[in-house]
Every structure is written in C-alpha cells, then in structure tokens.
Design a protein around this nucleic acid. Structure first.
Lengths: 165, 165
DNA sequence: GATGAAATAGCTACAGA
DNA sequence: TCTGTAGCTATTTCATC
C-alpha cells in the first residue's frame, strides 16, 4: 500500500470521498455526474484511494437496537502500568470481544476509553468481569450509560494497533 | 421503514450481517456460497435488512491521518442544564461540525462524550471556542488526546437524535 | 428458496489532450 | 499523466417455477 500524503488529494477526490463516506452504494456514474467527470475516471480515483489507504474500509453500519443490543456504555479504564507487556492481555481481550465497539488509548485522567454495546446490564457485568475485573493491572474503571447517540461519524482516527474490528 | 424485532433475524441473516459489517463490497455470490444459499435469496434478505433498518447505512470508512487530521481527541462535556431547550444549540453545533465524529449523551459524571478529529491543536482550540466556550450552558469540559485507536466497530448503538452524520 | 433472463454496474483497453 | 469513449465482464435484479 503506497503512502498517500494529504496534499495529493485534490478537490475532486475530496468530493468523491464526501459522497462515499455517506453512502458507498452510489453508482460510479452518479458520482461521475456529481463531480463532472466520466465514470472510468471516477473508478480510477476510487481505486487509487483504496490502494493508498485513504479509504480504509467499506462497510455496512448496523443498528444495535434492532440487533438486540440496546445498551450502549462508555467505560474509562485506569491501569496501574501502561507498559505494553502489562497491557497486552487487556488489549487482546478487547480485540476479541465483539461487544466492544471502539477502544482508544488516551492521555489524561484515564488510560483507555471503551465504547460498548450489550443486550443488558447483566451482560455488561459479565463482560466487565472477564475483561476488566480479572486483570490485576486494571486499577479502576468508570462506566457511563449512553442515553442517546447524537452523531456517528466513521472516520478512522489513528493508525490502528492490534487486531482491527 | 417497518420495525424489526431481533427475533426475526435468523442465523443466516446474522451470518450475512457479519460479512457486510466487515466488507460490503463482497459480491452476493460469495456471500451466498458462505451461507449456503443462492444469490437471489441473499439479495432478498439484504433488501429486507435494509428496509427494516437493521442495516442503517453503507459507507466508506476514511483514514483521518491521510486526510490530514491526525489528531483524535475525546471530550467530556458537562452542562449546567440538561433541558432540551438549553442544549439545543450545542447539539445543533455538534451536528453541523464535521470535525466531531461521534457524540453520545451519557449519564454519570459528564453529560456528553465527543470524539473529535482535527488537524492540529490550534484547530481544536478554535473548535472548542465556537463549540463549547461560547455556550454559557457548558459548565466545563475535559479533553483527552487519543494515542492510538485499538478498535473501531461500526454498530450504531442507539436511535439517533438530531441530524445523522 | 432456486433457476434463468434482463438490466445495470463495474472494469479494461485504447485513443486523445 | 490524466481524461473520455467504447466494449466487455460480472453483478444485481426480476420474473417464473
């Protein structure tokens, strides 16, 4: 995958990305019309954006409520030791746990921020048990219940470490 | 959009969703083969999942670094008054702000959790100014810098309120 | 739910700017 | 190097069983 510096993205690339970010089922012909280009030209640009990694993935976004996981929780995790060797287990469990939707390593008060989807509080309790309470490097964690999701963007922020979702 | 209760999703639906959640460019023939069904049968199921809202969106996931927004921040916002009328402005500004990738209304210590992507700290400062500091209903906010994104799942957790991304 | 035909989208090759 | 035109391949979609 060749690297891609932002300066090589022209305004047409950005316009294409703006469309695909919202809906990647839009036919290339329709995109072509929107950006005043031919369909193959659009196709080539999309191909390049994929190869260079600007487009990281093309996915379906699912509805957690309709999947029977109506509860969303945010969890701030504090660890004793941030050393990779000491956090490797936690990271591996997080990667393997489908209920964990997102995980960021952060600075400041807490060390990790998790966004989790579960069917019930009982499920969360069990999850917290095997994910956090069993780990003696986890000092404490603070859970908040999400009441609403006001916005969901899908730009992947930082180079991913470990297993991708 | 007809409602869809989780019980009406059989194991084949779940298998299809599991594939599409990772990569929605997989041809229906390949999905059909994976779930031991014919392509049109898969097509009908996908159509139903779309109409019922289980599949909420089909999108391209972009790389924020390659787009020139290498900084990810998480922000916990505390407000004075949670009344919808008093938070409407904040919510509207969040919805309109492309740098704000995600926003959850949460219980507990803070009232909102934001996940933000910006090009620089200077950009964030300007953003915080127009988004938060200008709002006299915002009591305080706590910003953390994300060091790494360990996992990104794309299940939309709760019914969205306000403008979707 | 499966089969086969029609429509449509995506991809490649080639020519020109 | 990039764009546009043309033609091909493959996928989606629809009608029928």
């Amino acid at each position: 995958m060749p690297p891609h510096d932002p300066s090589s993205l022209d305004s047409i690339d950005l316009a294409i990305l703006d469309i695909l970010q919202r809906d990647n089922t839009v036919p290339q012909r329709a995109i072509a019309q929107a950006v005043h280009l031919s369909a193959p030209a659009v196709q080539r640009r999309i191909q390049r954006l994929r190869e260079s990694g600007v487009i990281r993935a093309e996915v379906a976004v699912l509805d957690a409520v309709k999947l029977g996981r109506p509860l969303t929780l945010t969890v701030e995790v504090h660890v004793h030791d941030e050393h990779p060797l000491r956090t490797a287990g936690l990271r591996a469990r997080i990667a393997a746990e489908p209920a964990v939707q997102q995980c960021y390593a952060i600075t400041g008060e807490a060390d990790y921020l998790l966004i989790i989807n579960v069917a019930s509080m009982a499920d969360y309790d069990a999850l917290a048990e095997r994910l956090l309470r069993g780990d003696d490097n986890v000092r404490r964690f603070r859970t908040s219940v999400a009441l609403a999701c006001l916005k969901v963007g899908l730009q992947v922020p930082l180079p991913q470490q470990g297993t991708p979702a």
